[in-house]
């Protein structure tokens, strides 16, 4: 395993499983050609990662009346990677009021993505 930032521009590390294969990518519009994959999941991962990279986002929002000043929250599903910083900026300004239930929506439709932001715990 080499993680010393020596990936070539056309390589990505697959995280579909913990193995971490280095996949070679060639992209042509919506077509993604993946080589050097360890398994089929890698091909699927690479395609998504190139065309529409998404991440689960977990952060906190301010809460009043809780045992702590911050409430942990997370996106209900993977969120478009390019818009993560915008989402964080929005959540930084968000304040909620205790009591909150785990799983409760803090945002219904974050930045028009249709993705909800949920409370990670009761507080």
């Amino acid at each position: 395993m080499n993680t010393q930032n020596d990936l070539k521009p056309d390589q990505i590390i697959c995280v579909a499983c913990p193995k971490g294969c280095r996949l070679n990518i060639q992209q042509d519009g919506d077509q993604v050609l993946v080589t050097n994959e360890g398994c089929k999941r890698g091909v699927e991962y690479a395609r998504r990662e190139i065309l529409d990279p998404r991440r689960m986002v977990a952060t906190t929002v301010r809460i009043s009346g809780g045992i702590h000043p911050l409430l942990p929250v997370y996106t209900a599903e993977p969120f478009p990677k390019a818009r993560i910083m915008d989402l964080l900026a929005l959540l930084r300004k968000t304040q909620v009021q205790s009591p909150i239930q785990e799983g409760q929506s803090i945002l219904q439709d974050a930045l028009g993505t249709g993705i909800a932001v949920l409370a990670s715990r009761d507080m």
Partner: peptide, 10 residues
């Protein structure tokens, strides 16, 4: 600083 206070910076 407090986690949610960036002193004006985003």
């Amino acid at each position: 600083r407090p986690t949610k206070d960036t002193g004006g910076e985003a």
